[in-house]
């Protein structure tokens, strides 16, 4: 019996060797392990045998069937692999052809700067809030220590909408007032407000009748001018690189006292003097100061108990400096060929 089985196996191995077509293999498979294949035939007359003989024949034929199946499957795989490889070798593409372009979704350049500023201030506990662009005179000026007819209004030539009461806000500072009034002199405040502002300026490369300010306010206990400097250092480093240092110069604003102008060291020449910083080594980016006691009072905060600082800077100016843009109208006349470059993570300054 075993001899017969060995012969069948030898025959199978011999025959399968020459097969290279799938159809031939199917026929071979039928010849050996099909319904009336040679291996199946082995067990045909099983019922005529004794129990022991049946057992022997069963064992041998089962083993042979397993082996044959394995041999045929291996061959099957070999043929399939060959066919697939032949097919794939005909499917080579030119990977150097241009890619399919998916539209790019770039942020507006100002928004990109603003988002960076927001992220930094939020990490320092500042909420990001918004306020109306059509404002009342009392929020835009009066409660900020700039009464009607005050000379400080000259610097902010304002678009009035209704008499001298309703206007397009000339600064984001009214949001300071609104925020303080909201918390009614009871809770500390940390907020920034990036937003649109409007002034009667003729549009040119450096002036725009519409521009974006980023306002900030912190009101708490025992806040000092040094705290403002530390805060500014943080944001300057974030925006203009870790080497950036800041300096304060005295200045005058109605709603802060003491008031300062904030300069950053020129990141282009690192203080040596160049065209960007007009050879001074410094670039002014912001006005700031300690919240004027009158403003605190006007907004329900007792200046004996509370103190704080406020600041405002121009998003356009920051973006112009940061990205080397020389015309402020760039932000409002979007050329998509230019904007595309901003659809990416920024690198280190």
């Amino acid at each position: 019996m075993q001899e017969l089985a060995d012969t069948i196996k030898t025959d199978l191995l011999k025959e399968i060797k020459d097969i290279d077509k799938e159809q031939d293999l199917v026929e071979l498979k039928a010849k050996y392990i099909g319904k009336s294949g040679r291996i199946t035939e082995l067990t045909k007359n099983m019922r005529d045998l004794s129990v022991d003989e049946r057992k022997e024949v069963g064992l041998i034929s089962n083993k042979l069937k397993e082996e044959a199946t394995k041999i045929i499957e291996d061959k099957e795989k070999e043929i399939h692999d060959r066919i697939l490889n032949e097919k794939l070798s005909k499917e080579v593409i030119d990977i150097s052809l241009p890619a399919t372009k998916v539209c790019n979704g770039a942020p507006n350049i100002l928004e990109k700067v603003i988002e960076e500023v927001e992220e930094t201030f939020m990490s320092m506990g500042y909420d990001v809030v918004d306020g109306p662009e059509i404002e009342e005179d009392k929020y835009n000026f009066e409660l900020l220590n700039i009464p009607k007819g005050h000379a400080a209004r000259d610097a902010q030539d304002t678009f009035y909408i209704e008499g001298d009461e309703i206007l397009l806000r000339s600064q984001t500072s009214p949001v300071q007032v609104r925020t303080m009034l909201k918390y009614q002199g009871k809770e500390p405040i940390r907020m920034i407000c990036p937003g649109k502002t409007y002034r009667r300026d003729d549009d040119d490369a450096t002036h725009s009748h519409q521009f974006m300010q980023i306002e900030g306010l912190l009101v708490d206990k025992d806040i000092s001018l040094c705290d403002l400097k530390g805060t500014f250092d943080t944001i300057a480093k974030k925006l203009f690189g870790p080497d950036c240092v800041t300096r304060f110069r005295p200045s005058y604003y109605q709603f802060t006292e003491p008031s300062v102008e904030t300069d950053i060291s020129c990141f282009a020449c690192h203080g040596k003097g160049c065209a960007l910083c007009k050879n001074t080594g410094w670039i002014t980016i912001s006005g700031a100061g300690m919240v004027h006691p009158n403003v605190l009072k006007n907004c329900g905060y007792d200046p004996k108990e509370w103190s704080g600082f406020a600041f405002g800077f121009g998003a356009e100016r920051c973006a112009m400096l940061k990205y080397g843009i020389d015309d402020i109208r760039t932000f409002y006349n979007t050329d998509l060929r230019e904007l595309g470059a901003f659809d990416r993570k920024d690198g280190e300054q």
Partner: peptide
């Protein structure tokens, strides 16, 4: 003002949030 030093306000640690609008 060159005599000012940089300090960080001594206020509680929290993360700021966007107002809903």
């Amino acid at each position: 003002y060159e005599n000012l030093v940089s300090t960080i306000p001594r206020v509680p640690i929290r993360r700021g949030e966007y107002a809903p609008d």
